[in-house]
Amino acid sequence: MSVLVLVEGFNGEIKKSSLEAASYGSQVANALGTEATAIAIGEVQESALAALGAQGITKVLFDDDARLHNFVAEAYLKVIAQAASQESAKVIIFSNTNIGAALGSRLAVRLNGSLATNVTALPVISGDSFTVRRGVFSGKAFADVNLTGDVKIVAVKKNSIDISSDAGGTASVEKFSVGLSDADFAFAPKETVMQETDGGVLLPEAEIVVSGGRGLKGPENWHLVEDLAKALGAATACSKPVSDQDWRPHHEHVGQTGITISPNLYIAIGISGAIQHLAGVNSSKVIVVINKDPEAPFFKAADYGIVGDAFEIVPKLIEAARAL
């Protein structure tokens, strides 16, 4: 019996969300009196994998097949299912990325297991029951779910678990190969197009996000959002009407019909705070709202607020942020 954690690499490094999953997995292993093993896939350096010891991982199985640098569900599934069987894994931890969600559901069928996605806290384990808390109703509530299957699969919501950094020494890294054939890559993408991040930060992984709404009047004013983001090391986002009008690209749109984020800090500039917008950002740890209308609904969901004209306020913030 063991706990298996999927670790995803990106540009040689381990994704932050995978460090969270590793921290989660090793704490579950502790609670169950067993060890946490990682299965690492993607573009990542061996030295980075050994350092997973800090998150409490004792052993890393590393499949360095270059064909796995792109996500191909069928191939990934084969690798993970094989690792799970070799390690007799009873608990499998993913990060709730698009990849984690796509794999978790298929694996639940393949291993006849129980799956909980969007999980926000460590499990409560008592006797046979294994209960996790997950976000439901788009951030408006939590549900406590008991996973009754023999194999329990947990996809951990980003930025909801602290990364432990003092759990132990270095992890041993073992090469792992399941002999993938070309057929396993039949559904490989024809083409992959990465966004221009301009040396900046990817929105889904960002700890700080600066977001602009219709209050900014037009795309020509977005330097305010971009300059503040750059000064804070933040990613940029926007409301739906902003991307609908092509002021900003669609992948920046957050909310019910866009992406859901949960950064440590979300700064909303000229966004009214419609419920559909809040659905995408309401689990951010700290929310700052800048709006000229003191009655804007967003202030009800905010931790800090400034009432006033964004065109006067934001330059002051940029100046203060640059001085940090």
Partner: peptide
């Protein structure tokens, strides 16, 4: 394969702290 035991709501924010626009920094 799952049993929903109970539901709860997130803690309410303790309230917004307003900062004067003049001293935005």
């Amino acid at each position: 394969q799952t049993e929903y035991a109970s539901f709860s709501k997130p803690e309410k924010k303790s309230g917004v702290r307003m900062i004067d626009a003049e001293n935005a920094g």
